[in-house]
Each structure stands twice: as structure tokens, then as C-alpha cells.
């Protein structure tokens, strides 16, 4: 209501009737946002507690299972989020200076970073899908699969049997059907009886991401440690990074909304405060990832 607001000077933001001055009004906004962020800290905090308990209990297995995660992709995501955090801080900086074009460019780059983050996450989740590491009914973990690199390398020819065993041909006898191969050079390694599942086919829309992130691919590691604890670790991984991913999606929505409202000169955007609020939220998303990255991807032996 225009009669409820008054301007101290022409350039300054309006002070609403319940406030004494603009500083008090702005402090209220920031305080409200921080109240929300504190609830978020506790929300994620409870999950970090859960993580700490199981990591403490199963230190060795958590180390073994964490090798299934690709630290390079996680590192890329850390860098992307740090940079986007800087960009959103720059957007607030320009919003305060009322330089709208620069503000929108910074917000746009933040949005691109958010999409980049989700693409990397999609690639990671897709890999877990094809390696049977999503803790659902198709979950399968154990020493009988993984380690494709080991079979292919070392000058060995090998065939994996459905029961988890494998037949290898020593490096001296490479021409399988030829006269050089003798029976002695075939070795049979019996499996542990469980059926080794083949890698699952990824949905088509995920496959182009494989090409994009090919330079950061790591060879599939052999799976060591107890399958039960692996399932626990991966459940925590999907729970916590999934919840964080939901926050990134919400971030994408609010940043887009802020950009659209700013471009359309919506009456709700009277000053830099909406940008500051979105910025605080986005920094929080970055904060969570700062802890998730070392805790999930960089577990010490």
C-alpha cells in the first residue's frame, strides 16, 4: 500500500510501516531467512549424525565401498557449486548497485552451474544404476563382479561365468583356436555360487552424458567389503545426495523465478532483498555439499 510506505529519498528502497528504518526492515528479512536455514542445518544435521554413527561402526567397509564413487565427478561438482556460490554472491553485489544486466548475467551463470551439477549427478546415478549399486531389489554387490579392467588387462583373456567364476587364458596363448593354445594354459576360477549380474542397460537419455563426462570416467573398481554394509553406505549416499539434489532442483526453480520476475519488473522486486534471500539459500546448498564431498568421496583408508 503506497500510503503505508514512505521514501527517505528518491533512490532508496521503501520502508514499510511497521519498521523504523530500512536497516531494521532488511535485518528482518535476513533474520527470517536464517531461521529457515537453521531448520535446514538441523534437517541435514540429523542425517549427518546417522552417517557418523555408521561410519564409526563400519570404518573399514565404508572405506572399501566408497571406492565405488567417482571422486573426480564429485570434485567437478564441488568446483561447480563453489563457482556458482561466487556467482550468486556477485549477483547480490550487482543487485545492491542496481546494475540489473550484470545481476541477471550472474544469476544466469548460477543457473547454468545448477544444471551442470544435476547433469553430473545424473551421470553418477546412472553409473550406479548400471553397476547394480542402487539399494533396491536389483542391488548386487560383491567380489564376483566389477573389476572389468582387471580381466581385460594384464595380457589375459578371460570369460566370466554366470556363477561368478571365470576362465582365463594365460598371456602366452593369445590365439584361442590356434595350435598354440594348450589345455594347461586355461585356468578355471570357480565363483562363489551367486549369479553375477550383467551391467544393466542405461536409459537412452542418460547415454549422451557418458560421452560428455568420458574424460572423468574411472575404471569400475572391484567390489570389496560386506554387501550389507555396502548397501547401508549406498543408502546413506543416495539419501543424503538425493536430498541435496532436491535442494538443487528447488534452487533452479527459485533462481529462474527470480530472473523472470526481475526481467518483467514485477512489483514484488523492489530492492536487492529477493536476490539476497535466493543467494542465502543457494549458499546453503553449497555448504551441504562442502561436507558431503569429503565424507562420501574422500574417505581415508
Amino acid at each position: 500500500m503506497s500510503d503505508h510506505t514512505h521514501h527517505h529519498d528518491d533512490e532508496h528502497d521503501p520502508v514499510y510501516f511497521q519498521y523504523e528504518q530500512i536497516d531494521q526492515q532488511q535485518e528482518t528479512y535476513v533474520l527470517g531467512m536464517w531461521s529457515f536455514l537453521v531448520t535446514e542445518v538441523l534437517f541435514f544435521g540429523a542425517l549427518f549424525m546417522l552417517y557418523i554413527i555408521y561410519r564409526w561402526k563400519f570404518q573399514d567397509d565404508f572405506y572399501l565401498v566408497h571406492e565405488q564413487l567417482n571422486w573426480k565427478l564429485g570434485g567437478l561438482n564441488t568446483a561447480v557449486l563453489l563457482f556458482s556460490s561466487f556467482m550468486v554472491a556477485a549477483a547480490v553485489h550487482y543487485a545492491q548497485k542496481k546494475r540489473k544486466t550484470q545481476q541477471l548475467i550472474c544469476l544466469g551463470i548460477t543457473l547454468l552451474c545448477a544444471f551442470m551439477f544435476m547433469m553430473v549427478k545424473t551421470k553418477e546415478y546412472g553409473d550406479k544404476w548400471s553397476h547394480h549399486l542402487i539399494p533396491n531389489k536389483a542391488f548386487s554387490y560383491g567380489e564376483h563382479h566389477g573389476g572389468g579392467g582387471e580381466l581385460g588387462g594384464q595380457g589375459e583373456h578371460a570369460a566370466v561365468l554366470p556363477n561368478g567364476g571365470k576362465i582365463t587364458l594365460a598371456s602366452g596363448a593369445t590365439n584361442m583356436g590356434g595350435e598354440g593354445a594348450s589345455h594347461d594354459e586355461f585356468q578355471y576360477h570357480p565363483g562363489n555360487g551367486t549369479i553375477a549380474p550383467q551391467p544393466r542397460e542405461k536409459p537412452a537419455f542418460l547415454k549422451f552424458l557418458d560421452g560428455v563426462f568420458a574424460p572423468l570416467d574411472m575404471p569400475e573398481k572391484e567390489q570389496h567389503g560386506s554387501p550389507e554394509h555396502a548397501r547401508l553406505f549406498l543408502s546413506l549416499y543416495f539419501l543424503m545426495t538425493g536430498l541435496h539434489g532436491v535442494h538443487v532442483l528447488v534452487g533452479i526453480i527459485v533462481i529462474s523465478a527470480l530472473m523472470i520476475l526481475t526481467i518483467k519488473k514485477a512489483p514484488t522486486i523492489t530492492d536487492y532483498i529477493p536476490t539476497e534471500m535466493v543467494g542465502l539459500y543457494w549458499h546453503f546448498v553449497d555448504l551441504v555439499w562442502i561436507f558431503l564431498y569429503p565424507l562420501f568421496y574422500l574417505i581415508p583408508k
Binding site: L31, S35, L37
Partner: peptide
């Protein structure tokens, strides 16, 4: 991140208390 990017270093004492 909290001190600089989120600007807690530059805000009022009440916001610092919350953060």
C-alpha cells in the same frame, strides 16, 4: 562461505547469533 559469501561478517549481531 558463511562469513563472506553469505555476508554474516557484515551483518548485525542478531543475524550472527542466529547463524
Amino acid at each position: 562461505v558463511i562469513a563472506i559469501f553469505m555476508g554474516v561478517k557484515y551483518t548485525t549481531k542478531l543475524v550472527k547469533l542466529y547463524a
